[in-house]
Amino acid sequence: MHAVSHRFTPDDMAVIAAALAVAGLDTIEVGHGDGMGGSSYQYGFAAATDVEYLRAVKSVLTKTKLAVLLLPGIGTHRDLEKAAKYGADTVRIATHVTEADIAAQHVQIAKSLGMEAICFLMMAHMAPTAKVVEQARLFDSYGADVVYVTDSAGALLPHQVGERIAAVKEAVSVPVGFHAHNNLGLAVGNTLAAVAAGASSVDGCLCGLGAAAGNAQTEILAAVFDRMGIHTGIDLYKVMDAAEDVVQPRMHRPQIVGKLGLTTGWAGVYGSFMLHATRAGDKYGIDPRDILVELGRLKTVGGQEDLIIDVASRFAREAGDSGKHLLQRI
């Protein structure tokens, strides 16, 4: 929901989920873009509560698994319990690529609640493969059902995806997944590189509707996998219809690789920073690209949206100061 500033209503979600279910998708993740408990000043307030979204979507699903996202440090065990209570089958637990150990308790709680636990190593471009492997092993040891390499910044190149996936696949006892962003225009290509290297779960969004330049487009993945002879169980016409007839009318802007999405990927910055940087750029009169590049230089991680204001206000101050110097010289 990053791309719509978390403003989908429970009805929007139910309609989209129903279309996806008809198209034959395996698992549908719903909720705030920063997961359960993500509705906030820091990340933007959602149009409804986590429970309202879950209820609405659960009511239209029969076979399709319902998933939620949980970022430890934002959401807590209480959110997990809530998700289980309202029918979530799966939780995707995401940490920064070097911080898997903060999720140990959540994986264990999810398992004790009978949920499938899919563990995400976010911002996987920021750590060398050996580190990604070490952290994937941790998730495996906590009881993860699937371990994901997550390219949250859309910064990985296909060979880097392949290298990470192959190494993780080799190291863990569970299936491996990949989550792409399209900031460098590589979401579909990277997803294919991941599958070639052994990933068996991949993520997509209808119309690619996701943070920054979005994710891999589900409808394109369905068509490409079909051409490759990979069986996904997705009905191609129905998933195209879902994208074009259901999601597209609800989008705030076309999901393209614009200059800000491209900068996000090039600078290696968490995808959801893009819209926040745009707003801060407007407010302080700064080119949002400068903000994004600085956030990359500062090695920010997912969730540090507050730093955007800090950087923008610093740039504005500096610009003001140099403006004054100029005047004095004149």
Binding site: G73, H77, H96, K299
Partner: peptide, 29 residues
Amino acid sequence: IDEFTETTADAVVSVGGAKKGKAVIILNP
């Protein structure tokens, strides 16, 4: 890590005086 978010949010209300509170923690390597 939940202990941190829950306790901090609690203190923001009970000591800080806010009517409602929320806390987030982020680790940066």
